[in-house]
């Protein structure tokens, strides 16, 4: 569980996050939704500790970001997995090496076990046939899947995904969404996903935080989001005229 208490974050000349207050639950797929530029990626990077917040605090299962020393911060960050918006695969390494990388860097287990653990997650994302390929030889969707495998190979307590299914076809997107949800349940992970894909919102939105221009406007689950009478949420959910008509 991650609690966010009144955080503010600004860059040189603009306030990007304003008074965000929310909770992300363990064992649930928590979604952060909102238009492009609303601050989703910045919020995620604050949770990850990549950005320092200007004020407020983030509490990771009872441990406050305010009271952590650098060792404790490292400890928490080793329990996090992250899928970046652009995949962020290491381009000099092949698929297997990419997925194995966290194991190589951070664990002492032997070669065989590293390979079998990496292979388990590679198979899970359906890339068994591509293990020797370099990222530049993969499609955008395949790169995403490698990134997901790499993010979960260390069995993280917290999983962050920045638009995990952008660039995937709708069918694969749902497969990936469901895979993330299954893993979330199986390992009881606190999963936080940035998205502006309505399919994901409906499919896996167990706890949805809606951002607009840096403010949290609304929070609820996928059933509530469809019924919400909040003007901004309605605009986002029923963004096309056709959907609006279908609803009425």
């Amino acid at each position: 569980m991650i609690e966010v208490k009144n955080i503010l974050k600004s860059f040189e000349n603009s306030d990007v996050l304003k008074e965000i207050e929310t909770i992300f639950y363990r064992g649930k797929t928590n979604l952060i939704i909102g238009q492009s530029g609303s601050g989703k990626t910045v919020l995620l990077k604050c949770l990850l500790g990549l950005y320092e917040v200007d004020s407020g605090e983030i509490i990771y299962d009872g441990v406050s970001s305010k009271k952590m020393n650098s060792d404790e911060k490292l400890d928490i960050s080793r329990q996090m997995g992250m899928v970046f918006q652009g995949s962020a695969l290491f381009d000099s390494m092949n698929v297997l090496e990419n997925v194995r990388f966290p194991l190589d860097m951070l664990t002492k287990i032997d070669e065989n076990e590293k390979n079998s653990r990496a292979m388990k997650f590679i198979e899970r994302v359906n890339l068994k046939d591509a293990i020797n390929k370099l990222p530049s030889e993969l499609s955008g969707g395949m790169q995403k899947r490698v990134a997901i495998a790499r993010a979960i190979v260390m069995n993280p307590k917290y999983l962050f995904c920045d638009e995990p299914n952008s660039g995937l076809d709708p069918k694969t997107a749902i497969v990936i969404d469901q895979l993330i949800q299954e893993i979330t349940k199986e390992y009881n992970i606190t999963t936080i996903i940035n998205s502006h894909d309505m399919n994901s919102v409906i499919e896996i939105g167990e706890n949805i935080v809606f951002l607009k221009e840096g403010y949290k406007i609304w929070q609820g689950n996928n059933k509530e989001v469809l019924k919400s009478r909040n003007k901004e949420v309605e605009d986002f959910v029923y963004s096309s005229e056709l959907l609006k008509k279908l609803r009425n």
Binding site: K45, L48, L50, L74, S77, R78, M80, G81, M82, F84, Q85, G86, A88, L89, F90, D91, F101, P102, M105, L106, M154
Partner: peptide, 17 residues
Amino acid sequence: GTMRVTEQIDALEVMGI
């Protein structure tokens, strides 16, 4: 620089490296 731009450095930091 390419690693910075494509978030590979962020990926390392997130892993606690």
